[in-house]
């Protein structure tokens, strides 16, 4: 019968039409600027720089080793080293970046910089609201815009941040253990030297 299928379809759309008024679950639309869906934990788009503590300049983890700059496929990172050094979390004196720029209009979000960073300083962000009125200036993120606290990192990617912190704790422990071992070795060597010296002294005295 011609027209039966059409009537069936029209009943279906009528059900949709009325259903969208009394059944809020049907409407999946989110009114974006007012309502926002919380980002998924694995969501990521552009990199940022982590700092520890409260002072972003003092706590910046980046030591400007420039590995990320070299590895970046679209070459969106630009780093210049500073002449002054500052101590890192282990107390060692390290370099620091004078300029650290990321051009997010070029960045493709491949996360290679995160993978190669040996200092756990660069990680992926999930902030996507980068819209600006300028194509060039507003999309070139400078060091102060990129620097975000470790707390923020914990808030956006908790699991990953936990892992990073564990790595850093491990590093510190390794470092401390190494220092200890070094100190022990040094002390041992000193002791040995002292005993050696004492022995040789005693031998000398014997000979005499």
């Amino acid at each position: 019968m011609i027209g039966k299928g059409i009537l069936k379809g029209m009943v279906e759309t009528a059900r949709n039409l009325t259903g969208s008024f009394h059944d809020p679950d049907r409407l999946t639309t989110v009114e974006y600027p007012e309502q926002k869906i919380p980002a998924k934990e694995n969501a990521r788009n552009f990199p940022f720089l982590i700092y520890d503590g409260d002072d972003w300049e003092a706590g910046l983890r980046c030591v400007s080793c420039q590995i990320c700059e070299k590895e970046c496929p679209p070459q969106c990172i630009y780093i210049e080293k500073d002449k002054e050094k500052k101590p890192d979390f282990l107390g060692k004196m390290q370099m620091q970046p004078k300029i650290f720029d990321i051009d997010v209009s070029v960045c493709m979000g491949c996360q290679i910089c995160v993978e190669v960073c040996p200092f756990e300083s660069i990680r992926m962000d999930n902030d996507f609201e980068y819209a600006g009125s300028d194509r060039f200036e507003s999309l070139l993120l400078t060091k102060d815009q990129l620097a975000k606290s470790n707390k923020y990192y914990h808030s956006i990617h908790p699991t990953e941040a936990q892992e990073t912190d564990e790595i850093r704790v491990q590093k510190r422990e390794d470092h401390l253990a190494k220092e200890k071992a070094k100190a022990e070795k040094l002390a041992k060597a000193k002791e040995e030297a002292a005993t050696k010296a004492a022995l040789s002294k005693a031998e000398k005295a014997k000979e005499e």
Binding site: T13, N16, L17, G19, F21, R26, L27
Partner: peptide, 10 residues
């Protein structure tokens, strides 16, 4: 508006 409602949009 009506097409939107048919497609479960606003």
């Amino acid at each position: 508006k009506m097409l939107g409602r048919i497609q479960n949009r606003y």
